[in-house]
Computed example of a mutant assay.
Amino acid sequence: MYENVVVSADWLAERLDEVRVIDVRDAWEFDGIGHVPGAANVPFAEFRSEAGDEGMLPGRETWESLLSTAGVGPDDDVVAYDDTHGVFAARFLVTAELYGHPPERLHLLDGDFSAWNREHETTGESSSPAATDYAVREPEHSPLVDYETVRDALGDDGTVIVDTRDPAEYAEGHLPGAVNLDWRELVDDETRGLKPESELRGILETAGIAPDGRVLLYCNTARRISHTYVVLRSLGYADVGFYEGSLTEWTERGGPVETA
Rank of each mutant, 00 (worst) to 15 (best):
G86H: 05
S127M: 10
L109M: 11
W250E: 00
Y229R: 02
V136S: 00
G245R: 10
Y134C: 15
D152N: 08
V5L: 03
N117I: 12
E97H: 12
L194T: 10
V145A: 04
G254V: 03
W11K: 10
R224G: 02
G34W: 07
G241M: 02
P167K: 11
R151L: 13
V136K: 00
V7A: 02
V5T: 15
V19F: 08
E172L: 03
T95R: 14
R137M: 00
H227W: 06
G111R: 11
S198H: 08
V5W: 00
V42G: 09
N41C: 11
L216C: 04
H227D: 05
M56N: 11
G124N: 15
S128A: 07
A51G: 06
A27W: 09
V230L: 15
S234G: 07
L235A: 03
G52I: 01
A178N: 05
Y2R: 13
Y243P: 05
R105E: 06
L247T: 07
G193C: 06
A135W: 13
L144H: 02
D163V: 07
W183Q: 11
T191K: 06
A90I: 00
V21Y: 04
T228W: 14
M1R: 05
Y134P: 08
D31Q: 12
D110I: 04
G59C: 12
R201V: 05
E199K: 12
A96N: 04
W116C: 05
T248D: 05
L109Q: 07
E121D: 09
G86D: 10
